[in-house]
Amino acid sequence: MSQKHLLVIITETVLEDTVIDEILKLGAKGFTATDARGLGTHGMRAGRWSVGGNVRIEVVGDEDLCERIVASLTAKYDADYGLLMYSCPVNLRN
């Protein structure tokens, strides 16, 4: 079985549905989303109400899938929205 990667996408709550549609279209089998808050180049995202909040979306897949997602989201949203993505190799245990 090929090495799996965990891709973590942290972005604005308003993009949650759009990003989820996008990653499923690109071939992800599933995802986990949680509300998030924090500080970054787009200022404090306190999560006090929907416009000011962030979402953290995690996807596990092969490296190729992660690359496709990163390329697609960067092209579409990186310029105008708060968007942070990182990945690391993981061992699936079940």
Partner: peptide
């Protein structure tokens, strides 16, 4: 508006700075 409009504008006019309008 500060509930419906910010969300709608963030989606449709993302290059606008939400700090100004909100």
């Amino acid at each position: 508006s500060y509930i419906a409009a910010p969300t709608a504008m963030r989606i449709a006019v993302p290059e606008a700075n939400p700090a100004l309008s909100i």
